[in-house]
Design a protein around this nucleic acid. Structure first.
Length: 677
RNA sequence: UGGCCUAUGGUGUAAUUGGCAACACGUCUGUUUUUGGUACAGAAGAGUCUAGGUUCGAGACCUAGUGGGCCAACCA
């Protein structure tokens, strides 16, 4: 067993248990069952990774099944997009299936259901039916059509199928229990009339099965061993099993449904319906807008499959509600891109830098490393000349000592080039800096090996030669919502939290090596972040997206410096833990400590106890009997406190009873401690 | 007035047969660095929602309480 004993999540444990039980490895089969009514988002990635991940782990097939039972919402476009997204993530399905492939089988089973008296045609309005259904706390009551004869039901259902009725006139319900505690068991609908063409079956059907009647049976038909879904389907399990009971032959594999908590991300919405609204109202440019949490959006943004899979892996699988910090997603894309993305220089907010002692008209092509994390990435040439662009924020006239960038009189290194020294600032009439003049040290060229080239200067700036630079449109994204939980306010709609500045488009100046990039190419613009080539990009008009910025510790220092001016304020000072809370803390485990450690801890407690007030000591007297450690700590505290105050336990109310109880306790340590009084 | 699920550092996830609760992100310190990136070293931060119980021993099991989630679409 070379197996790291990495702990299994609860779903893997279920599978392991089953494998130890009646399941063989060949029985395992999973499925990912999206409804083709929208694009997949990061939340679906979790479901995909769980089922496909299990498939990879156990060498089991995984079906991609389109749960297409509602022609009103479903389209071929979505089927295609979902396939693309799943395979882009790097998963291979065994079969592509459609619930609609099982319409006939489902229908046949339904006939049997009716014959068995387990389904009936109801002909009321949906309002009347809802009325009879009751509420979670009130049982429902049977409707007037519940006891139709089998013949009548068969006839009506046949005519529903034949298209004799309009939508809503009749539906077919399972006959279970209108008073069941589980609302879903109160005679759920299994078929409704829908006069709509289906994207696959066309006009073959005008009755369509509902989710519950379709899902478990589809799992059964495909012989899915473990049907994994998110927590909100937990109440459906009972019905899933009930339906399965009706068709299960006992001779083959019976699927089981298990549920896990879905993924939530802060500052993000995760509902297809709401994402659709963003698309329809033009808040974003489409399902694949780089700000969207859709897989296609993330892909266009520059996220890699590996980064997403690693992210999902890090998130884990459990049954409790969770909200993941987007910082974790960002961590994983940076981690992936740091290894793989070629480095390149691009100036996004340019200011002109003139090297006054650099010869007019001269140009040099300097060596630049493509990726310090990957030697095999090689080098490229970057042109250097007298006039450059640098970032506006990389120069400051009056800079503090913590500012490592260019300022007058100070030296910095130009990445891959020379060390320069700030000399002079040229401003326009309004006082805006238009040009910075500097001088360079001709001996200091990067990699030249001279003494001067090895000098250490604090800052290194990226730059681009003005005459060689190529222009590009650069799109900078911020989060789409300004609220951490845009979907979580009862009084406010998520649309109110849309961040109006989620997209900034600027013109950047890039080193010329970027001339021939292709859509999807990923780069690190040094010191600026990771960028990829957007699909809008053309050779004559390059368009880049910022996937994610670099971690930026300078960004954190800046605001601190600013606030340092009014910095006589009391420091946030670590709150000194009170003697009492420290004792409590120490006490908690006291009874379980090894001898030596316990003695030193007791000594600590006694020392601290001298600082306690009488009231605080009395607090220990009510400690739950179960908490031996805390009682022990209380005992020690009482002892030390009494000693320090020159009191006996008779002087302290309640102390005698406390000690007495401890003497009689079965814990020896406690007895011992109490016996000293 | 119901049923089901759930509760471990700021966040997320761990904790098989006896380890004063581990890992990752985040935060903070340093070191290295021609990216204020990366890498490396280190620190702070929970004593496991509360109260009982079972046990030699409970984060794990039981009961109750409390907090959170889900459940009444001819959606999936």
């Amino acid at each position: 067993m070379t197996e790291e004993h990495k702990s299994l999540n609860f779903l893997e444990q279920i599978v392991e248990e089953d494998l130890k039980g009646s399941y063989s490895k060949e029985d395992l089969r999973f499925r990912f069952p999206p409804e083709p009514n929208g694009y997949l988002h990061i939340g679906h990635c979790k479901a995909i990774c769980i089922s496909f991940g299990l498939g990879e782990k156990y060498g089991a097939p995984v079906n991609l099944r389109f749960d297409d039972t509602n022609p009103a919402k479903e389209e071929q476009e979505y089927v295609d997009a979902i396939k693309e997204d799943v395979s882009w993530l790097g998963y291979q399905w065994d079969k592509v299936c459609f619930s609609s492939d099982y319409f006939q089988q489902l229908y046949d089973w339904t006939i049997q259901l009716i014959k068995d008296g387990k389904a009936y045609v109801d002909s009321q309005s949906s309002e009347a039916m809802a009325e009879q259904k009751g509420t979670p706390t009130q049982p429902g009551v049977p409707g007037p059509y519940r006891d139709r004869t089998v013949e009548e039901n068969l006839d009506l259902f046949a005519r529903m199928k034949a298209g004799e009725f309009k939508e809503g006139e009749h539906i077919l319900r399972a006959k279970i229990d209108m008073a069941h505690v589980n609302m879903l068991m109160r005679d759920p609908i299994i078929y409704r009339v829908l006069h709509k063409d289906h994207h696959r079956t066309g006009s073959d059907w005008c009755i369509y099965p509902m989710y519950d009647w379709t899902h478990g049976e589809s799992d059964y038909i495909e012989q899915i061993s473990h049907s994994l879904c998110s927590l909100e389907f937990k109440p459906h399990r009972e019905l899933y099993d009930w339906f399965l009971d009706q068709v299960y032959t006992g001779e083959d594999l019976r699927p089981k449904q298990r549920e896990f908590a879905r993924l939530n991300l802060n500052f993000t919405i995760m509902s297809k319906r709401k994402l659709l609204k963003l698309v329809e109202e033009g808040v974003v440019s489409g399902w694949d807008d780089p700000r969207m949490p859709t897989i296609s959006g993330l892909r266009r943004r520059g996220y890699t499959p590996a980064s997403i899979r690693n992210f999902i892996d890090a998130v884990g699988v459990a049954k409790r509600e969770n909200v993941i910090d987007v910082a974790l997603l960002e961590f994983h894309i940076r981690q992936d891109l740091n290894r793989t993305a070629p480095r390149v220089m691009a100036v996004l907010d340019p200011v002109k830098l003139v090297i006054t002692n650099y010869p007019e008209g001269k140009e040099e092509w300097l060596d630049a490393e493509n990726n310090p994390e990957d030697e095999s990435a090689g080098e490229r040439k970057v042109p250097f000349s007298k006039e450059l662009y640098i970032e506006r924020e990389d120069f400051k006239e009056n800079a503090g000592s913590k500012y490592f960038r260019l300022t007058t009189g100070k030296e910095v290194r130009l990445k891959n080039a020379y060390i320069i020294k700030g000399e002079e600032v040229i401003k326009d009439a309004d006082g805006n800096i238009t040009e910075i003049h500097c001088t360079y040290d001709p001996e200091s060229r990067s990699g030249s090996g001279t003494e001067a080239s090895k000098r250490n200067v604090k800052g290194t700036l990226h730059w681009v030669s003005i005459q060689h630079a190529i222009k590009a449109e650069v799109r900078l994204f911020d989060r789409l919502f300004s609220d951490e939980n845009p979907d979580g306010h009862e009084d406010k709609d998520f649309m109110e939290f849309i961040n109006p500045n989620s997209l900034t488009t600027i013109t950047g100046y890039l080193e010329p090596s970027l001339k021939d990039v292709e859509v999807g190419d990923l780069f690190q613009f040094q010191r600026k972040g990771y960028f990829n080539v957007d699909k809008d990009s053309t050779p004559s008009h390059l368009v880049f997206n910022r996937t994610v910025g670099l971690r930026d510790s300078w960004a954190k220092i800046k605001p601190k410096q600013a606030s340092q001016k009014n910095q006589n304020a009391p420091k946030p000072q670590q709150q000194q833990a009170s003697a009492l809370s420290t004792i409590n803390k120490l006490g908690k485990k006291l009874a379980n400590l090894p001898e030596e450690k316990r003695l030193t801890t007791v000594a600590d407690i006694q020392k601290l106890a001298a600082q306690l007030t009488e009231e605080e000591v009395k607090g220990f007297f009510n400690t739950a009997a179960k908490k031996v450690g805390t009682r022990l700590a209380g005992m020690e505290s009482l002892y030390a406190f009494a000693k320090a105050q020159n009191k006996t336990i008779k002087d302290i109310e309640g102390a005698e009873a406390f000690v007495e109880k401890a003497r009689e306790d079965k814990n020896e340590l406690l007895q011992e401690a109490a016996s000293r009084f």
